[in-house]
Write a protein that binds this DNA or RNA. Structure first.
Lengths: 324, 324
DNA sequence: CGATCTTCATAACATAATGTTATGTTGCAG
DNA sequence: CTGCAACATAACATTATGTTATGAAGATCG
């Protein structure tokens, strides 16, 4: 038996308010109109929706069950109205973006600021995560955009991925670090100093393990972990610690001359940073705008970052060149 | 702007099928009726819902967005129809029940079978979990019933709990176990033999830790873990291993004389096994029926289990009494 | 227990919505 | 370029749904 969707929504309003009069007011129609709708529905159903002769209205089992579906319909209808309102306002109100922490901190937060100068009526909610949570967030519509590195394997089915920066890591240290004065670095040199561990679950942590394996180190002296990018930089400045960072992140921080690149060749991840979203999702103009802004900015930055990388003298004899 | 819920559902059908004609057929109305509805909606909206002059129909951004809400409405409406159909048929089709693994295996699966002989048109979906997942499953309407032990603290607000069996644990072993021949058991005796660890997250695991603490054992020799009840029984039969089990579970397996109770006094949990569900959920007749069946069966079994417990000679000198 | 008030149910009427068939228009495929 | 199928529009009939008016019924208060 087919029930008109509007009637289910109206039933939900009555069950929620406990009153035909209140529900009618809430729905913007007259009390007799709603009363008759319920009566007609009960007739078609052959069952009462409310316990008869009881005030306040108390729904029967079938009344409650149908009202549950009606609540879903009511909510979807309300959201549809909101969708129309936002569409007419030229935005969908809020863009929800998340990404791997260091890139979000080093680049994306600034780009969001730039974008919002151009689009003053769009709000942006930022959060953090790694690939699994980011994919889940997008798939379940808790996120509009994700900034994530992705490996050689394509994005999972249903996701679109716009590459913005090839992955390249470096070992970072403070500018006056003793190892910068050595002509040739050995494995022992790297073991002798404390390390900062990347955040659990992050691709950088996997990179660190790969680095350790490649240079024969089975264990390093981790003295600090769990910090944000700023904390890591601050910690590096105060200690002789080492850590693995994306080169672009150090580049983004280049004006702060207290942290630099230790010129040691390390294995590089076959990964690209990019913007991930659902393939077939209805396009949200605000999210589209932010994604395009981020892609354009990285188009500009890519060459600068490349030049910055090339200015580092990697593990060669002679003078240690400070990046300009 | 308020859009009639039926129109949103109809829009979803058109977007999904890509055809006004197909959608009209699916919705049980004529093609011109649906075409006019869409036209009137576009007029009120002031935006096309489909790219104009294109075949097959290709929805615009706002068309897709609204169709997404309409899909939810369509689905809720379909479920409402299903609810009416099930209600009229005297059942809601499927009962979703989950519980702690060993009780589900030892008792509930058999009781489900008994119940379904009496109610041949009701389907039961069984799954496993411990208290946190069971509460979450019920709260989010992924489960109708849960079989779980509950402590002295009452069920969380919003849940109803029907006690069916007080908690009582024993140490289980194979019938010819060497420790059964000893007149008096020491802590060392229990240390000398391998143990099966209960499933992670299970109350039995907590019980095992409490047992270890009470008898001064800081560590036991866990040789096996992660098995189902049947695997545990099979493993016990083949080895001299020990494990902690609910006494009722051993009782349920009493016809298989290869596993028995090691008569050692252990601390008992202040817990009761029971049936948990939402307090104010609309009553599903099938779930109500299954819950009542389970409660009735345990009413019958409680005395038998008690008698079985009393037949074991606990840690006394003299002959070791084999349970009858 | 009776009176009063509020909520729900029903009637009558007017308007809007929505179903149909018929038919013209338009896009796409061969 | 032609034919076919899908979409758009018109006309008509029926159903749905809005309103105000008013009676019935339940709950509360004195």
């Amino acid at each position: 038996m087919k029930i008109d969707e509007k009637h289910l929504a109206q039933l939900a309003a009555v069950v929620e308010t406990g009153s035909v009069t209140d529900a009618a007011r809430q729905l913007g129609l007259s009390q007799p109109a709603l009363s008759r709708t319920l009566s007609m529905l009960e007739k078609r159903l052959g069952e009462p929706l409310f316990q008869q002769g009881r005030r306040p209205l108390r729904p029967t089992t079938i009344g409650l069950q149908l009202a549950e579906h009606g609540r879903i319909i009511f909510e979807a209808s309300r959201k549809a109205s909101e969708t129309v309102r936002s569409y007419r306002a030229g935005s969908v109100g809020t863009v929800r973006i998340a990404g791997v922490p260091f890139f979000m901190d080093a680049f994306i937060s600034r780009m969001i600021g730039e974008f919002q100068v151009l689009q003053p009526d769009i709000r942006v909610d930022q959060s953090y995560g790694n690939l699994p949570e980011l994919e889940s967030g997008i798939a379940s519509n808790r996120l509009d955009l994700a900034i994530t590195p992705l490996g050689i394997v394509d994005a999972a089915r249903g996701f679109a991925f716009t590459p913005i920066l090839p992955g390249r890591n470096i070992v970072a240290c403070r500018t006056g670090h003793p190892l910068l004065r050595k002509r040739r670095l050995s494995t022992q040199d790297l073991i002798d100093y404390p390390w900062i561990a990347p955040l659990p679950g992050s691709p950088l942590l996997a990179d660190l393990h790969a680095i350790l394996l490649s240079i024969g180190m089975s264990e390093i002296n981790v003295r600090y972990s769990g910090g944000s990018l700023l904390s890591v930089f601050n910690y590096l400045e105060e200690t002789d610690a080492l850590t693995v960072l994306p080169h672009s992140v150090v580049f983004a921080h280049r004006k702060d001359r207290n942290v630099t690149v230790l010129p040691v060749e390390i294995p590089q991840p076959a990964r690209t940073l990019g913007i991930m979203r659902l393939s077939d999702a209805p396009r949200l103009p605000a999210a589209e705008g932010l994604a395009q802004h981020i892609a354009a900015r990285f188009d500009d930055l890519r060459q600068l970052i490349k030049r910055h990388e090339n200015s580092i003298v990697w593990g060669m004899s002679g003078d240690r060149t400070t990046p300009t």
